[in-house]
Write a protein that binds this DNA or RNA. Sequence first.
DNA 1: TAGATTGTTAATCGATTAACAATC
DNA 2: TAGATTGTTAATCGATTAACAATC
Lengths: 225, 225
Amino acid sequence: MIYFREISEKKSNKLVANKNSIIRLSRYKNALTRLKAMGFVKVFSDNLADAVEVTPSQVRKDFSLFGILGNKRGGYKVDELIEKLNSILGKNELQNVVIVGAGHMGTALMRYKGFEKEGIRIAACFDTDENKLDRNAKIPVLPISEMQEFIKKKKIRLGIIAVPDHAAQEVLDKLLEAGIKGILNFAPIKLNGPEEVVINNVNIELELENVIYFVNVKDKAKVKV
Amino acid sequence: MIYFREISEKKSNKLVANKNSIIRLSRYKNALTRLKAMGFVKVFSDNLADAVEVTPSQVRKDFSLFGILGNKRGGYKVDELIEKLNSILGKNELQNVVIVGAGHMGTALMRYKGFEKEGIRIAACFDTDENKLDRNAKIPVLPISEMQEFIKKKKIRLGIIAVPDHAAQEVLDKLLEAGIKGILNFAPIKLNGPEEVVINNVNIELELENVIYFVNVKDKAKVKV
DNA sequence: TAGATTGTTAATCGATTAACAATC
DNA sequence: TAGATTGTTAATCGATTAACAATC
C-alpha cells in the first residue's frame, strides 16, 4: 500500500493520524459545538484543552498534524474549526451503514439515537431469521440473501457486525465481497480480513473485565493498609 | 492514594498494569482455553504470541510484570497459567453487576450471552419507566427507587450505565453513593467521579467515526494514484 | 509597542521489542 | 552435554509535553 503510506507519514518519519488523535478530534468537535452554543466565536488551545482534558500542547499538535492553522495571538475561529474538523472526520456527507444481525445488540444499534445527529444513517439491517424481517419499517430488516445486492446498489461502504461469534467471519466475508470498506465488529472474536479494510472491534466483555481488574487492584491496595 | 501507588509501581519507576496489558491478559486467557481444548498441556511464549498476534517478548514481559513465572526451557503449564490469569483478572469469583437503564442498550446487555461464561452475573436492571418493570424475570427489572438498597444489601461493586446522556451523571452519583466501585458507561458523555472509582467508557459513535475516518483516508489515498 | 498565543522543534515519558545471560 | 527457552536488561520506537521563536 505505497500510496497510503505516502500520505499517512510525513517526510520526517513522524506518523500522522493514529486512533487516539482521531478520537481527540471528535472530542474537540463535540466540545466546540457546546462552546458555540455558549456564544464563543473564537477559542484558544487553552479552552479546548480544558474542555477535553488534555494539554494545550496536545491540542495545537493535533491541529498542526491535520493542517489546521489558527492565528497567532487570535486563536481559532469556532465556525471554521468545526467545519474543518467535520471535513476531516467525514461528517460533511451522510454516512450510510448496514447492520448485520437483528438480535438484541443489532436492534439496540438500530434504535440508537446517537447516530443520526452525527450524520450516520442506518440504511438497513439484515438477518437470517424470517420472524425478524420487516420490510416496511423505517429501517427495514431484510433477509441476508438480499444483503450483497443492497450494498452494491446503494454503494454502502460501512457495516456493523452484530451476529453470534460463529457467524461473524462468514458475514465479514460477504460484506467485503459486496464492497464494504469499514467494519465495526461487536462479535468477540478476531476477524480476518485484508489489510486495506478497516476493522474496529468493540468487545464489551473485555471492557467490563478491565473494570473488574482495576476495582480488584484498588480493593487489595486498601486492604493492605 | 499512597497505598495504591505502592503496589501499582515497581521500585524502579516502571509502572505495572496499564489498560492494554490487562486486555492482553484476557486475550492470552482466551487463547489458552482454546489451546487447552486442542490438547496442549504446555505452551511457549511463541505459541501465545502467535495466537494473540503480539511478540514473544511482549508475552514474557507481560507475565513477568504480573509475577507469572514459567520454566526455562519448559515453557508454561497451561492449567496453571489459566488459573493464574483467572486469579489476576478476578475470574475466580462470580462478579455481580447491576445495569441501569432498560432501554434498547440495557436490554441487549441483559440478554448478552458473553457475560455468563466469563463469570459475570447481571443481578438486576433498574429503570424509571414503570412499563419496563418485571420483578419476576430471571434478571428482574426493578424501579430505580429500589436501586441503592439492592446494591447495598447484595454488596454489589459493579454497575453498567445505559441511560440517556442527560440522566447519566445523576445515575452515577446514586451508584457511587450506594457503594459501587467500578462503572462501565455507555452514555456518550464525560462522567465526573472521584479518582478512586474506575470508570470505563464505551462510546459507540466514536468507534464508528474512527472507522469512517480511516476508510476515507484510504479512499483518498487510492484516488491519489 | 508590549503581551499573548500559535506552530514547531526538542525533551520527556512510556510502552514495545530485541538481545542475551541464566538455566533447565 | 548441547540446545532451547525463559526472565530481564538495554535499545528502540512512538506519543505526549515543554519550551520558545515567530508574529499578530
